[in-house]
Amino acid sequence: MTIAVIDYGMGNLHSVAKALEHVTHENVLVTRDARSIQGATRVVLPGQGAIRDCMGELERTELSGLVRELLANQSKPLLGICVGQQMLMDHSDENGGVDCLGFLSGQVRKFPLDMQDTQGARLKVPHMGWNLVQQPNAHPLWNGIEPGAHFYFVHSYYVAAEQDEQVFGTTEYGNVSAHVAVGRDATFAVQFHPEKSARDGLRLLENFVQWTP
C-alpha cells in the first residue's frame, strides 16, 4: 500500500507528504519514478507556481504520458492539488494561454484585478488566505466536513468547469464563483491546499486515503 506524490519538480511536496503521513500509516513516496507511480495504490498530483512551468516540467520529465494514462484508466484514486487541479482542465489563460490535460471540460481563468468587496475595498489578487467552500454536490471526500468549512487558498487563476455534475466545491471571491473542487470517477481535485488547511484539510486527506471509488 503506497501513496505516490508525483514529483515533477514543482511545488512544496514535503508539506503534502508530511500531511499524508499524519493521517495514514501507508507508505508515502515522493517520486518521479514511473514504476513506483504505476505500482502505487493512490496518486497525488500537486502543483505550484506558473502552469506553463508545471505543464512543461511534466512533459520534460516524461511524466505527462504516465499522468494521461492514469487519468484515462481511472484505475486508482488520484488527488490533484492547486495547479494539479488546474492542469486537469482543457486550457488555462495563464502565461498567454496553455493547453492542459483535458481530463475535465472547462477553462482556467484569472481573477479580475478590479474586484471590490461590499464596502468598496479592493480585493487582492492572489486570492490568498482562508475562504469558505460550499459543496454543490455530495462526494465521499467531504465526509465529516461541513459545507461552508474554511480552506486555505493561494492562487490568481481559478477553474471554471463546464459540467455542473463535476463540480463538488465552490468558493465566492468578489463576483467570481470559483470551482475549487472538481472530479469524476476516481479523480478528485482541489484548488485549495488541504495540507495547509488545519483540521478540515487533514480530514479531506484522510477521506482520500480511505476512498474506494
Binding site: 461590499t118 486570492h127 482562508w130 475562504n131 465566492e172 471571491y173
Partner: peptide
Amino acid sequence: MALSKRII
C-alpha cells in the same frame, strides 16, 4: 463571502 482576515 469575502476572504477571512488572518491572525499570524
